[in-house]
């Protein structure tokens, strides 16, 4: 099946480019011939019913699927023109450039400070304590968490509320200065107020990063993203500007899904 691409989609500066990507778990094909561009300074959302492969595809983009022994990836995925599954690509470097935020907030059971400092430390970003302090503060400020936690940086990250934990995880991800941030249903475990804060944050971060967000909420996709891809049964049915997808879908399937008729 061919992905329908909206005709009035303007050309963008592709940060990542996937061409003919298929993913297998053992013999089972989870992603079937997916091609898509991830433009920089845009938020791209992946929508689709559960089990359609959107999270799997997201994890392929920073090779988190490598941790699953039976997973196998075919096709080409490039980051700034470099093949991320190529032999020249160091997976550690890749993940520093392509950060990820998970569905459930997963701060380390360390202090707030150490949660943020973790990435800069392992990548040798900061020389000395002062520079590290700066990175921590900058990341927390950008994640909109600084004012809430600046007086208790030594408290455990797990002691924060769910929404704060998720923003801590976003701060942790941007502390290593990534180029792309992947978000796997980042608000599904949060209440509406915390969700609104995260969405605000995504809008703020938009200027500097290429962001990909997987979401089950149609409203969220419409609110935060400029590009939307509709996944179904392991392939992209339709891809285009978010406004086009939601107001003028090309496929009946997409229409049915976004109007809540199934999925």
């Amino acid at each position: 099946m061919v992905t329908k691409i909206h005709p009035n989609l303007e050309a963008t500066n592709a940060k990542m480019n996937a061409q003919g990507v298929s993913v297998y778990y053992g013999d089972k094909k989870a992603i079937d011939d997916v091609s898509i561009e991830v433009p920089s300074k845009y938020v791209t959302s992946f929508i689709g019913p559960s089990g359609c492969g959107k999270s799997t595809f997201l994890r392929v983009l920073n090779r988190m699927n490598d941790t699953i022994p039976t997973a196998r990836v075919e096709g080409d995925i490039t980051l700034d023109g470099e093949d991320i599954y190529g032999s020249n690509m160091d997976v550690v470097q890749l993940r520093a450039r392509v950060g990820m935020v998970f569905q459930k907030p997963n701060p380390f059971p360390k202090s707030i400070y150490d949660n943020i400092a973790y990435g800069p430390k392992i990548h040798g970003f900061a020389e000395g304590k002062e520079e590290l302090d700066e990175v921590v503060e900058r990341s927390l400020v950008r994640a909109g968490l600084w004012n809430e936690v600046k007086d208790r940086l030594t408290d455990s990250g797990t002691a924060l509320s769910g929404g704060q934990q998720q923003r801590l995880c976003i701060a942790r991800a941007i502390a290593v200065d990534p180029e792309v941030i992947l978000m796997d249903e980042p608000c599904s475990a949060l209440d509406p107020i915390a969700t609104a804060k995260i969405e605000e944050l995504i809008a703020d971060l938009n200027d500097n990063y290429a962001i990909v967000i997987v979401t089950h909420s149609m409203q969220q996709a419409a609110r935060v993203s400029q590009r939307t891809a509709f996944f179904h049964l392991g392939h992209i049915v339709e891809y285009g500007r978010t406004s086009d997808i939601f107001t003028n879908p090309l496929e009946q399937q997409t229409q049915d899904y976004i109007t809540g008729r199934y999925g």
């Binding site: 920073n62 988190m64 941790t67 550690v92 470097q93 890749l94 993940r95 520093a96 950060g99 990820m100 998970f102 459930k104 997963n106 701060p107 380390f108 059971p109 360390k110 973790y118 990435g119 392992i122 990548h123 995880c169 942790r172 991800a173 290593v176």
Partner: peptide, 27 residues
């Protein structure tokens, strides 16, 4: 130690051994 901790660390670009030393063993 929850798988999420491991994933979180690996997704930051930590190596397997950094993840073990800095996240799994402390936890």
């Amino acid at each position: 130690v929850p798988q999420a901790m491991r994933d979180g660390s690996l997704a930051m670009g930590a190596t397997e051994s950094e993840t073990i030393k800095r996240v799994l063993i402390p936890a």
